[in-house]
């Protein structure tokens, strides 16, 4: 009889001295898995150039239509990313995003990755839409942030995804027209990159096509229905 008594209370006593399982959240946080799907981050190369090339593949992959990308052309004077285009506007709506990571899989340059940070909480709907400035990775101290000139980039001679950053012949030609007689980085695009590295330059025929397309009157920016859903409507909605 006494042994049962002791055994019964023994269980209670054992639990009294056991370490509590509770994680004291705001002070301490549980370690997440290394590949945890947290908030997004737009990455940069080590020299401060953005990795995002504005291809919108993330936006197309997104099952919740949470991503909005607006691309723009790099110019010899303002180079944000390697290649032709960069994202002039990039927004992720964290009231739609389900953190599935399909955008990460879709990203061809690993510009978009996910962090361990996951607290996306707010008292307003507007502040749940993260803009490009909020998503961009901070620059390392001593590194110039994104808009570099072609001259700076080529002087470094760094390779981005297996090729040099170069301005297309068309953009170079336009820049040369603007500043006639100035030689240097603007003419770089006309030279083929070293054999074996990087994407080959467009052929003459392709360039001509591109020229025709660009000489045509550029259509005013008309957001598609899905983009409208992301940006203006929800901002209006809260008012």
């Amino acid at each position: 009889m006494l042994s049962e008594f002791i055994r019964g209370f023994g269980v209670t006593l054992k639990h009294m001295v056991r370490k509590p399982v509770t994680i004291q959240y705001p002070e301490k946080k549980k370690d997440y898995a290394a590949r945890y799907h947290g908030r997004h981050q737009l990455n940069r190369y080590a020299d401060g150039i953005e990795k995002c090339i504005g291809c919108e593949l993330c936006a197309w992959a997104c099952p919740a239509d949470a991503i909005y990308v607006q691309g723009a052309d790099n110019t010899p004077d303002a180079r944000f990313s390697p290649g032709e285009r960069y994202a002039i506007d990039y927004q992720i709506n964290y009231l739609r995003c389900i953190f599935c990571g399909l955008c990460i899989e879709a990203c061809p340059t690993r510009a978009l990755t996910m962090t361990q940070e996951d607290e996306v909480t707010s008292t307003t709907r507007e502040s749940m839409i993260f803009t490009k400035e909020m998503l961009l990775a901070p620059v390392v101290a001593g590194v110039k942030p994104a808009p570099h000139t072609d001259a700076e980039v080529t002087a470094r001679g760094e390779e981005y995804y297996g090729g040099f950053a170069f301005t297309t012949p068309l953009a170079s030609a336009q820049a040369a027209e603007g500043q006639a007689g100035v030689s240097g980085p603007a003419s770089l695009g006309t030279e083929p990159p070293p054999a074996g590295v990087g994407p080959s330059l467009p052929t003459t025929r392709e360039t001509d096509q591109a020229a025709t397309a660009l000489n045509a009157e550029p259509a005013p920016f008309a957001p598609e229905a899905r983009s409208e859903d992301i940006v203006p409507e929800e901002i209006k909605h809260d008012e």
């Binding site: 705001p26 549980k30 009231l95 389900i98 996951d118 996306v120 909480t121 707010s122 008292t123």
Partner: peptide
């Protein structure tokens, strides 16, 4: 609504973050 909370579904930590807010 007083506090909006993202995530699908949000972790308990995120809910507690919203509660603290």
């Amino acid at each position: 609504v007083d506090v909006y909370l993202g995530g699908c579904p949000p972790r308990p930590e995120q809910l507690m973050d919203a509660i603290l807010l």
